[in-house]
Write a protein that binds this DNA or RNA. Sequence first.
DNA 1: GTGAATTGCGCAATTA
DNA 2: GTAATTGCGCAATTCA
Lengths: 195, 195
Amino acid sequence: MSDSRVSSVIQEWVSSYPGQPHSQSLNPVSSNQAAPSGQMSQMDMIIYNQSQGIIRGGADDRVAEQMMGLPYLSYNTSCLNNSNSGSANHHQSHDFSPFLLPTVRAPVTKRSISKDSAEYRMRRERNNIAVRKSRDKARRRILLTQQRALQLQEENQKLQMKIGQLTQELDTLKHILSQRHLQGAEEGAAHESSI
Amino acid sequence: MSDSRVSSVIQEWVSSYPGQPHSQSLNPVSSNQAAPSGQMSQMDMIIYNQSQGIIRGGADDRVAEQMMGLPYLSYNTSCLNNSNSGSANHHQSHDFSPFLLPTVRAPVTKRSISKDSAEYRMRRERNNIAVRKSRDKARRRILLTQQRALQLQEENQKLQMKIGQLTQELDTLKHILSQRHLQGAEEGAAHESSI
DNA sequence: GTGAATTGCGCAATTA
DNA sequence: GTAATTGCGCAATTCA
């Protein structure tokens, strides 16, 4: 009855969690850097087309501070305002390429992806579609979890009510049985006295 | 025992939903337009500084298509690739300003907020902080809901087990009682026959 | 009217 | 190599 209704929702809810939550959802301390793209919107073309590399701001600070609570208070304007001048790519601060084995490629000639190329736009568009799809999926999953929690709460109340009824019925029967037991003992005594 | 543990989590969960979910969380069909800011990142300075107005892409299409399922399939490249040329601000496509009453202001001189102004950066920074705070809150709320659902599920299993035990105990007592009843009837018959 | 909060979106980096 | 996830900033909207 109500089990079938609940179980259907639970089935849907379980199916929305195919496997492990990727261990990143619970531990968001992956190598988080999140370049301030908005800040770079005025000069990203220059950066990307000239240096052909990815320049990030102070990322380690954010990672360290996201470990603590209230991470939204940790972003100071210093990090954002200085994103233009300092914080050069520290992967290139020391050029060891003449001493490295040829298996290690130089990070400069990485891909040379122009933001004007059709390939870039194609990749971006595909990623945008994937992002929308993923977020839609996440929204549905959250809604299912909420509905599941509510239904489990209702079912809990019903089960506790049923436990109360069963307990009361059990007490009644136990009382009756104890009365019968006393009555039986008296009758037994009467029998023995009558012999 | 286990009730206190569960109720604490539920308390936390309930407190994370202070009031109505603003009726927008459940019905996300508000006047959604979401200008493709990322697409305009290469020329937003020009647009914003020249026309001093906000130019949006085809927003009504998205609203209409988000009503249906799979909204992530509805964004075609046509809307995005033509964001530069077409889709001018259709509020200005016909200039009726000479015939309008002075109560209707022209949308051109709306606020003239330059992206280079310190006030703009201050507003952006404050909003960024608010966004991080809000998303952190949402993440915590989702986690609490998941934990709550799991704890309710565990509690449900325990309650169902208890119901099984009580039912079995009840059946046993009923059976005993019925036996006593038969025994009492036989004894009563024996009494009458012995008289 | 104003500032905070919420929301949808695109971008970039990372992951699977 | 591609699709999926995730954090972030931006802009529009809503809330208080």
